[in-house]
Design a protein around this nucleic acid. Sequence first.
DNA 1: AACTTCGTAAAATATATACTTTATAAAGTT
DNA 2: AACTTTATAAAGTATATATTTTACGAAGTT
Lengths: 185, 185
Amino acid sequence: MTNVEKRLKESKSQFVEKIADNMHAFGVSETIGRVLGIIYMNREPMTLDQLSEATGMSKMRMSQVVREMIELNIAKKVFRKGVRKDLIQVEDDYYQTFISLFTSNWQRAVTKSRSFERKLQKDLETIELDDSLSKEVIEEKKELDWETKEWSDYYDWINRLIEFFESGEIFEHVPINERGNKNDK
Amino acid sequence: MTNVEKRLKESKSQFVEKIADNMHAFGVSETIGRVLGIIYMNREPMTLDQLSEATGMSKMRMSQVVREMIELNIAKKVFRKGVRKDLIQVEDDYYQTFISLFTSNWQRAVTKSRSFERKLQKDLETIELDDSLSKEVIEEKKELDWETKEWSDYYDWINRLIEFFESGEIFEHVPINERGNKNDK
DNA sequence: AACTTCGTAAAATATATACTTTATAAAGTT
DNA sequence: AACTTTATAAAGTATATATTTTACGAAGTT
């Protein structure tokens, strides 16, 4: 391997580390970022064995990580005729990866919260107010009712925010700085 | 304490747990969310001692947590005449909290990345291409140059996204579902 | 100046998260 | 049917993150 080749390889691996680091900052495990970076730089889908080889981690761990990535919508399994092993392909658009990472996270939070919300609201509804209660207590009840509604609106907003990102509308208002296509450099 | 009062208190504490849980899902420690919830529900700024009492955690931990919250822009120390202890107040707007949480996180990632980006770009610039190199190697060098620029654009986009959120412009496109003011319920 | 009160740094401990090993089921091959 | 290959579940181990304990300096009080 020539000196230039060595240096390019080194730069490439630094780039992968940068992707890993970036994604880690955005709340997923560093390994997820590293695997994404490795497949991205490879330009071709990869198998669990190849990933295991490339990361130095166990195949089992790769299996776990890939599953997480699929849940996050930043990877998918692809089929190729004659190949028995799973081939994993990743999202190759930085912006889309960013969006998937956050919206799937937000979505999970919304879903989780909804059922709790209903439960709390039901609880509050069954609390009967009568004249024997002090002004302060009645006031507090009202505040809690109000907070619950407010919280519900908040989650509604997050839902609309998710849609705003996933539909791509965000790019109309925060446009990508176009630099031409990868293939006409 | 009457039965109603007990149940209200229970609902209130559940609400705090919900805030904690929600914020945990958004990448900060559960304790940060709990502290925010506690101060929020208290409607008044609180001291480290009060927080320690309310959470059952050490005062030292409260000190650490509050500092993190201040860095995240979701809390601040307020001064009150005659009070020596620090009084901690929190952001009381759900939407603003959401925004601060994410933008400060994104901002940190951008800052961290910028210096690395420059370093990598410099490295790549010093790699000289000459005719002895294969077509593949030259192609690979070009791809890396392209990726570096692409990555730089991506961070630029995140910066503009941060501004889009922090300026409040986001609310023009994903409006809050108005329900009137807290004080006219 | 000696004495408190308060906040936080540094080191030690506990808990949660990331990762590996071992074991097993499903599908493909002989 | 016996034998491989592949993926993943369950349980155990290691590493990272959250939290407490101990200690100390800065500012206020007597």
